[in-house]
Design a protein around this nucleic acid. Sequence first.
DNA 1: TCAAAAAATGGACAATCGTCCATCAAAATC
DNA 2: GATTTTGATGGACGATTGTCCATTTTTTGA
Lengths: 223, 223
Amino acid sequence: MTGKREQNREQNRLALIEAVLESVAEKGISETSVSEIIQRAGLSRGMIHLHFGGKDNLVHAAARHSSEEYYDGIEALLQTAGDSPQERVEMIVRGDLSERVLNRRNVSIWYAFRGEARNRTVIAEYSDTRDGRLRNMIHNAFVRIVREAGCEDAAGVARDATHGTLAMLEGMWTDFLLHPDRFDREEAVRIVFRFLTAMFPVHFSLAGAVRPELAERAAERPL
Amino acid sequence: MTGKREQNREQNRLALIEAVLESVAEKGISETSVSEIIQRAGLSRGMIHLHFGGKDNLVHAAARHSSEEYYDGIEALLQTAGDSPQERVEMIVRGDLSERVLNRRNVSIWYAFRGEARNRTVIAEYSDTRDGRLRNMIHNAFVRIVREAGCEDAAGVARDATHGTLAMLEGMWTDFLLHPDRFDREEAVRIVFRFLTAMFPVHFSLAGAVRPELAERAAERPL
DNA sequence: TCAAAAAATGGACAATCGTCCATCAAAATC
DNA sequence: GATTTTGATGGACGATTGTCCATTTTTTGA
């Protein structure tokens, strides 16, 4: 059994990480100082050095944590989707644009870290959607679609579809970052579907962009 | 006539702005200190306060400058394009993905400022591609295409096409940010064209994605 | 119950931050 | 050429940064 000791330790570790994310979301990276962090976490100054060996490592851990939260959210959502590749792609798109994933807090955090990604390779690892699990999920689905469609240059089409879908989703996030007020989720979903319909007219349709039962499930908080 | 006085003044102002952009591109925003800036500019410490009244204002001016450089680049390119809306859209896409505009320096700067946009409204103004001139340029072109095509819900289609194209381009920039080495411009252009072809099969074709004469012009440095 | 071990505290510390001003240099005006 | 005007200099300044450790508090194991 985990003793009270280890239990508390882990709890404080997490409190520090959460404090960083909170501060980054609210004040930005440049104003996220050690004083700011420990104040939010309600812990003492030395904790950062004790648990992470320095502020930088703590920030990296926070970036990693945030990234994992994102992927976990998408993956959880994906498990509620059916087996057909179309449905899986639709679920990912809806999930990525749902309020649970795409919200002010997450967008602030994500872009704050991105801004540092160029100069901090450790952070870059965690703000990547291409190498990551997401890319594989989508790619696998497209490969299956392409296979049963039997079109020529199947591999190329699947790759382009993956790349294009991810690019569009990225763009929608940027939209949200700059205009959280006037952002329209329905419109965003519809436009991504326009791309999908173009690539695979047989498998996707614009009507799918308003399929109510999928939209509902994507909006729920799975766990 | 501008005296030697004013001439020198303006020159130093610009040197400071360039120094900021250089430092932001190379070291990131968090490591862009006053000492760093004045060292790169080769000027004295007091200059920042003298010309801009503080570091924050200087950084804002630099963000504005960078943004204007971007738009000027695109607009210059656009003037070499023909009058047809198709050609104008193609030119914008190619321009936005050309080496002149999409390179390591610009991407670093752009995303560094984006990371601060959420918490610094002044910066947000200059890192927006939706309100900006670019959006209008593309939208106007699509409106013309839609008009001659005479499809139903013309306004909606034009809006979606604009939104989608911009989102895709944003996504491609993110791609470049995270993987400048393996980024493939040709592939990026091709994928955007897949979207355009889907929206307007009559006006665009994938063959356009490899039209050599436009690609050449987009690659040139127009002044 | 009492050492031993581990975790948490909070202040000392040097380094760095951005601001600002007394001083200096040079161009503009007479 | 003398005087005024204005841009440029660079160091002083207090505030804040992140690191680290001597000390205290708490849990663990005998």
